[in-house]
């Protein structure tokens, strides 16, 4: 499909509200994390919000890690 419009793609095809609702910020082991809630109630790590470079070397905060 080719669209010819000055509008952005998301104005024409709005994104599902549910995906935004599932994503949230939470504190895990004292660090701020951006997570997505999975169907079974656990959380999947999307992004670690930290300025300490060493936090990014911590295996518990790698993106994709499941937090129970």
């Amino acid at each position: 499909m080719i669209l010819y419009t000055p509008l952005s793609e998301t104005d024409i095809f709005p994104t599902d509200e549910q995906t935004l609702v599932k994503r949230q910020c939470m504190t895990h082991q004292g660090k701020m994390c951006f997570v997505e809630q999975k169907g079974d109630g656990s959380y999947e790590m999307l992004q670690l919000l930290s300025t300490d470079p060493n936090d990014f070397l911590n295996g518990d905060f790698q993106p994709g890690t499941i937090i129970k």
Partner: peptide
Amino acid sequence: VQKIQQLGQANVAQAPDSNIHVL
């Protein structure tokens, strides 16, 4: 397996505390 899937490696290197932070 999860770690390998996400990062392509089993372990990540450890480093001493840093006095310089990264944003």
